[in-house]
């Protein structure tokens, strides 16, 4: 390859800050500053991603060592013996059955005022969990909306992010949810003002109880019926979704 070398428009101080972010050696205040800078400035975001890409290809910088020939056979044999005992993917967003998008149009209309006060705080919380330019690009849009979710009887907390007018995805970021045994799974629901609930999707936590998932629900609520609440329940992973279970997290819309 012949990489194309380009001049960098950012000042040294900002590039050093971004490099420190990628290397993980910033103090919390500096990290927050970087995350805000990246949200505000696409040039900074692009440079952060380029530094991250540079850091992440460092394994390719090692002179290759040829593994011993028997290793290939061991791996192939081990996988052959284990056929039929595959474990489920984790974390996983399974089939989404709820069509949340038309409801979210209503969500925006009724939630704008209520969310205005909290939006900046929630935005900052989610920004701290930035894992993708997708999140950053949604957050950069001035009309993006965040709904706070809090635990019922537990310390879980988090946010749901979406963009009015672009109903292709909802991003959910949660923390401190108790990890579940394999036979159970978290499911998210949207409650409507007429008391019915719409299924949005299901997920598991990381080992530390955090969740960062993207839903693409597809079920349509009745026309003209407003959404009032988001719910998270614990359900059987192999059972049909059951909206009657006690919620472990809720979020008012």
């Amino acid at each position: 390859m012949n990489p194309n070398k380009m001049p960098n428009p950012l000042p040294e101080e900002k590039r050093m800050l971004l490099a420190g972010y990628v290397l993980g050696d910033l103090v919390p205040e500096e990290r927050e500053r970087v995350e805000q800078l990246v949200l505000d400035d696409p040039v900074m975001l692009k440079e952060l991603q380029a530094l991250q890409a540079s850091f992440e290809v460092m394994p390719q910088g090692l002179v290759p060592v040829v593994p011993p020939a028997h290793l290939r056979e061991r791996i192939v044999m081990r996988s052959s013996k284990a056929v039929g005992v595959r474990e489920p993917r984790e974390p996983e967003v399974r089939q989404s059955r709820g069509k949340i998008w038309p409801v979210l149009v209503g969500v925006v209309a009724i939630s704008t005022l209520a969310l205005a006060m909290d939006n900046l705080r929630l935005r900052n919380q989610l920004a701290q969990r930035i894992k993708s330019d997708r999140v950053a690009s949604i957050l950069q849009q001035p009309n993006s909306r965040l709904i706070a979710l809090t635990g019922d009887g537990n310390d879980a907390a988090g946010t749901l992010l979406f963009t009015p007018g672009n109903w292709q995805e909802v991003i959910v970021s949660l923390g401190d949810l108790p990890p579940l045994p394999p036979e159970e799974i978290y499911r998210m629901w949207l409650m409507l003002e007429n008391g019915t609930v719409i299924y949005c999707g299901e997920f598991n936590t990381q080992n530390d109880g955090s969740v960062f998932v993207r839903f693409t629900p597809d079920e349509t609520p009745p026309k003209g019926v407003k959404a009032t609440q988001l719910l998270v329940t614990i359900d059987g992973s192999q059972t049909e979704p059951d909206p009657s279970r006690e919620p472990v997290m809720t979020g008012a819309i």
Binding site: M1, P3, N4, K5, M6, N8, A50, L51, A53, S54, V57
Partner: peptide, 8 residues
């Protein structure tokens, strides 16, 4: 990153 240039 500068040496890798447009490749990243």
């Amino acid at each position: 990153r500068r040496r890798l240039g447009g490749a990243v």
